[in-house]
C-alpha cells in the first residue's frame, strides 16, 4: 500500500486526475450560502457599482437621462444587494454585527464597509434627485458613490477567492477581471434598456469593454486552472457560463445596432443583464461543484507539492 514519495510525485505529474480519497467524500465544505441570495448579491452589487460611476460621469458630461437611470439603478441595486446579504444570514437580526469591527483579513468585513456607505450614498443621491431637495448634497453623495463604484464591482471576487473552495481560490487571478467585466456589461445593460439612444453612446462603449474583459477572463478560468477548470466547463456551471458568454456576445452585437433601433437597444440591454445573472450563478455553481468532489482539493495540492517539493508553498 505504501509507496515511496518520489513515485507518488511522478504519478501525480503523469496522470494528474488520479487521486485517493475517503470514500469519495468531500474534504472542504461547500459554501453555506443560499442560492439565489448570494449570486444575486454579487450581480446586484456589481451592477449598482458600475451604474453609480456611469451616473457620475454622465452628470459631469451633461447627459441627464443617463445620469438619472444610473443613479436609480445604483440605489435600487445596492439596496437589493444589502437585502440579499441580510436574508442570507443565519441570524438576520444581527446584520449590524457586520459593522461591529473593521477587519482587513476578512473580505466580507471590508466588503460590508464598502457596501454600507455605497448604498447609503447612492440612496441619498437618488432620494435627492427624486424629491428635488438638497440638490448639492445629493450630487456630492452621487459623486462619492461613483468613486466607490469600481470597488463595488470587484470586492466580491476577493470574497469568493479567499476561501478553500478550489474553483474560486485557484481562479483568484481571473475572478476580479471577470467580475469587473460582468459589472460593466450589466451596468451598461441597464442603461441601454432604460435610456433613450441619444444618451447611450458611453454605455455602448462601456458594454463592449466589459464584454471583452469578461469573455477573456472567462476563457482563462475555463482553460488555465488545470483540473479545476473542469468545474467551469461542465455541469450546471458550464451551462450557465456558456449561456452567459452567448448572451454577452449577443448583447455586444445588438448594442452596435442600438443607435438606430430602440428595440435593438432594449434587447442588447436585456441580454447584458441576463448574461450578468448567468455569469454570477455560473461562478457560484463552479465553486459548489469543486467543493463537492475531493478530486479538486487533492489533485491541485498534490501537484503543488510535486512542483515545489515542500508543503505549504
Amino acid at each position: 500500500m505504501s509507496r515511496a514519495q518520489p513515485s507518488r510525485r511522478e504519478r501525480a505529474m503523469v496522470e494528474p486526475a488520479e487521486f485517493r480519497s475517503y470514500y469519495g467524500r468531500p474534504i472542504v465544505k461547500e459554501p453555506a450560502w443560499e442560492q439565489p441570495d448570494v449570486p444575486l448579491y454579487l450581480f446586484l452589487g456589481g451592477t449598482a457599482g458600475a451604474s453609480a460611476s456611469m451616473a457620475t460621469m454622465a452628470r459631469v458630461s451633461g447627459l441627464p437621462k443617463l445620469a438619472r437611470v444610473g443613479t436609480l439603478v445604483a440605489a435600487g441595486g445596492s439596496l437589493a444587494s444589502v437585502a440579499a446579504l441580510i436574508h442570507d444570514l443565519g441570524r438576520p437580526e444581527r446584520f449590524l454585527y457586520m459593522l461591529r469591527v473593521f477587519k482587513p483579513t476578512s473580505p466580507l468585513s471590508v466588503g460590508s464597509w464598502i457596501l454600507a456607505p455605497f448604498s447609503g450614498l447612492a440612496t441619498a443621491s437618488a432620494a435627492s434627485m427624486l424629491t428635488g431637495r438638497l440638490r448639492p448634497i445629493g450630487t456630492l453623495a452621487g459623486g462619492a458613490a461613483g468613486l466607490l463604484g469600481p470597488a463595488m464591482c470587484t470586492y466580491t471576487a476577493v470574497l469568493l477567492a479567499d476561501t478553500a473552495t478550489p474553483a474560486w481560490h485557484e481562479g483568484r487571478g481571473d475572478l476580479p477581471v471577470l467580475f469587473a467585466g460582468s459589472a460593466a456589461t450589466s451596468g451598461a445593460g441597464a442603461a441601454l434598456l432604460l435610456v433613450p439612444a441619444t444618451e447611450t453612446a458611453p454605455a455602448r462603449r462601456l458594454g463592449l469593454a466589459g464584454a471583452a474583459a469578461e469573455l477573456a477572463a472567462g476563457h482563462r478560468l475555463e482553460h488555465n486552472l488545470g483540473v479545476v477548470s473542469e468545474t467551469y466547463r461542465g455541469g450546471r456551471a458550464g451551462t450557465l457560463l456558456k449561456a452567459g458568454k452567448a448572451l454577452t456576445a449577443l448583447g455586444a452585437g445588438l448594442s452596435l445596432l442600438s443607435k438606430r433601433s430602440r428595440v435593438a437597444a432594449a434587447a442588447a440591454g436585456a441580454a447584458y443583464l441576463a448574461a450578468g445573472v448567468c455569469t454570477r450563478f455560473g461562478v457560484y455553481a463552479a465553486g459548489v461543484a469543486s467543493a463537492r468532489d475531493p478530486k479538486y482539493t487533492v489533485v491541485p495540492q498534490r501537484e503543488r507539492m510535486a512542483r515545489t517539493g515542500s508543503p505549504g508553498q
Binding site: G49, A50, S53, M54, M57, A58, S61, G62, L63, G149, P150, A151, C153, T154, Y155, A157, V158, R172, G173, P176, V177, F179, A180, A183, A184, A201, P202, A203, R204, R205, L206, A209, G210, A213
Partner: peptide, 22 residues
C-alpha cells in the same frame, strides 16, 4: 488584483465618456 481590476473599471467608464459631452 481586485484593485487593479477596479481601476480598470474606472478607466473604462471615464474613457467611454470621451467626447460624450453635449
Amino acid at each position: 488584483r481586485a484593485g487593479a481590476a477596479a481601476l480598470g473599471v474606472a478607466a473604462a467608464v471615464v474613457a467611454s465618456f470621451a467626447g460624450a459631452r453635449r
